[in-house]
Amino acid sequence: MLEEIPLIFHLSGRKEKERDTIFLPTINRNTYTVTLKNAMSKSIVFHRHSTFVVDLSSIGFNETEFSNLSVQSRFIEGRRDTDKRQIHLLWQFSSEETSPGEEKELLTFGNLDLSNPPPSAQVEMAIAYEEIGVKSGPDLEGRYELQVYFENNPNESNQNLQESIVVDCSDSISTHQADKIIFTFRPGITPRRVRAMHTTSFVITLSYSYERPGAGVLMIPENAEQIRLSRKKGATQWDIVSHMGMKSPSWLLQPPFGKPILETGLDAVVEFEMENIYTEFTKDIATISVTYTDVPGYLDGSYPLSIEKV
Rank of each mutant, 00 (worst) to 15 (best):
C169M: 06
M219I: 10
S174I: 05
V167L: 05
S242M: 08
H176P: 00
R228L: 09
V241H: 08
Q147I: 12
R195Q: 12
F257D: 05
I182C: 10
P260K: 10
S172E: 13
L146E: 02
G245E: 10
K247V: 11
V203Y: 03
N160L: 12
A215F: 06
Y149T: 06
M219H: 10
T199C: 10
L252A: 06
P256C: 07
D139Q: 12
P154H: 04
T190L: 12
Q254I: 15
K259V: 15
M274N: 01
V217K: 11
S209Q: 04
L206F: 11
A268V: 07
P260F: 09
E145A: 13
E263T: 13
I173F: 03
E271Y: 01
V166E: 02
P213G: 12
L229T: 07
P191K: 08
K232Q: 12
E151N: 13
A196I: 06
F150P: 00
E263P: 02
E151C: 08
G234H: 01
D139R: 08
E141D: 08
G142P: 05
P154Q: 05
E271L: 03
Y210H: 12
K232T: 07
P138D: 13
A224Q: 08
Y278M: 09
T205M: 05
L262I: 09
A215P: 00
P256Q: 06
L262S: 07
S209H: 02
Q162T: 10
A235F: 02
W238Y: 02
I277V: 11
Q147L: 14
Y149R: 10
S164N: 09
Q226K: 15
A224M: 06
E275H: 08
A178Q: 15
V194Q: 09
L140I: 12
N276Y: 09
W251E: 02
K247L: 14
F183Q: 08
A178M: 10
E163F: 09
T190N: 13
S172W: 04
E151H: 13
S174H: 13
H198N: 15
A235W: 02
S172I: 06
S172Y: 07
E263G: 15
D139V: 15
Q226E: 11
S207F: 04
Q159R: 15
F183S: 01
S157P: 02
G265E: 10
T200W: 02
D267F: 04
S157T: 12
R143K: 14
S174Y: 07
Y144N: 04
K259F: 11
Q162W: 03
I165K: 05
L218Y: 04
P256S: 10
E151P: 00
R228Q: 11
E211R: 07
I277T: 00
Y149K: 09
F185M: 08
M274E: 04
R195D: 07
D179F: 04
N155C: 09
F150M: 04
Y144D: 05
Y149G: 00
V166W: 01
V203M: 11
P260D: 06
P187W: 02
N152W: 03
Y149P: 03
Q159E: 14
A178N: 15
S230C: 00
Q226G: 13
